[in-house]
Amino acid sequence: MREEQEELRDSLLLDIYGGLLTQKQREALHMQLDLDYSLSEIAENQGVTRQAALDAVKRGIARLRELEKSLRIYERFARSMGVLARMEALAERQGNQEMLEALREARSIWED
């Protein structure tokens, strides 16, 4: 997986599992993944050393990936979205508006 794709995946994992991290880890990852802060900026915002910020980020990412390995919520999300997209395309080709609306409603459950 390319670095950019890994960052996007980690950001989504943070959305899914962030509540299971420590507050410091969650904040550090949010600043790095969502706000694109440098480690120095994270350290300054958290009032810690750059090394402590790096540790929080590394441990947080490791925990997110560990949780995903066990629970596989992101994997199921990604697979579900792929299946929904194929079904929506099929319903659209067939002109089945009722099915298309139901599929879009199912997609919105994941996107909220």
Score class of each variant (00 low, 15 high):
G47A: 04
R59Q: 07
L13W: 03
E41C: 08
E44G: 05
L71S: 05
L67D: 13
R9H: 13
A56C: 01
L64C: 02
G19W: 03
L12H: 15
D10H: 04
D55E: 05
Y37E: 15
A28R: 00
H30D: 11
R50A: 01
L84M: 02
E41R: 07
L29P: 08
E68A: 02
G19H: 10
K69T: 07
S80I: 06
G82C: 09
R86C: 05
L14C: 12
R86P: 00
S80E: 03
R65S: 06
L33E: 01
E41G: 03
A85P: 02
A52C: 01
L39T: 06
L20V: 11
G95W: 08
E68N: 08
E27T: 15
R26P: 07
R79G: 12
Q46C: 04
L29G: 01
R65C: 13
Q94G: 08
L54Y: 10
A91T: 03
D10F: 08
E66K: 05
L64I: 02
L20C: 12
E66V: 06
L12P: 06
N45A: 02
S70M: 08
R93F: 10
L33P: 06
I42P: 00
Q23E: 15
Q23P: 12
Y37W: 14
L21G: 14
Y17Q: 04
A89Q: 02
A43H: 13
E44W: 09
E75P: 01
Y74G: 06
K58Y: 10
E27K: 15
H30G: 04
R26T: 00
S38G: 04
I16L: 04
I61C: 12
N45Q: 14
R26L: 14
M81Q: 13
H30T: 09
K69L: 06
L90S: 08
G82H: 06
A91F: 09
A91C: 01
S70P: 05
M81S: 10
F77A: 06
L64M: 02
R79W: 07
E27M: 14
R76K: 07
D55T: 11
F77Y: 13
L29M: 04
N45C: 13
L12K: 09
E41Y: 07
R79L: 07
T49V: 01
I73E: 00
G95V: 13
K58H: 04
A53I: 09
D36V: 13
I16K: 14
L64E: 00
V48P: 02
I73H: 12
A28H: 02
D15E: 12
Q51C: 04
L14G: 03
L67E: 14
A62Q: 09
A91S: 03
K24S: 10
Q25K: 07
A53W: 14
G60I: 11
A91Y: 09
G18H: 01
G95E: 11
E66P: 04
R86T: 11
I42R: 11
R63G: 02
E41N: 04
E88H: 06
Y17P: 14
R76D: 03
A43D: 13
T22R: 06
V83H: 05
T22P: 02
D55A: 06
V83R: 11
R93L: 12
R86W: 11
R86G: 08
R63Y: 03
A91M: 10
I42F: 01
L35R: 11
S11C: 09
M87I: 09
A43W: 11
K58V: 12
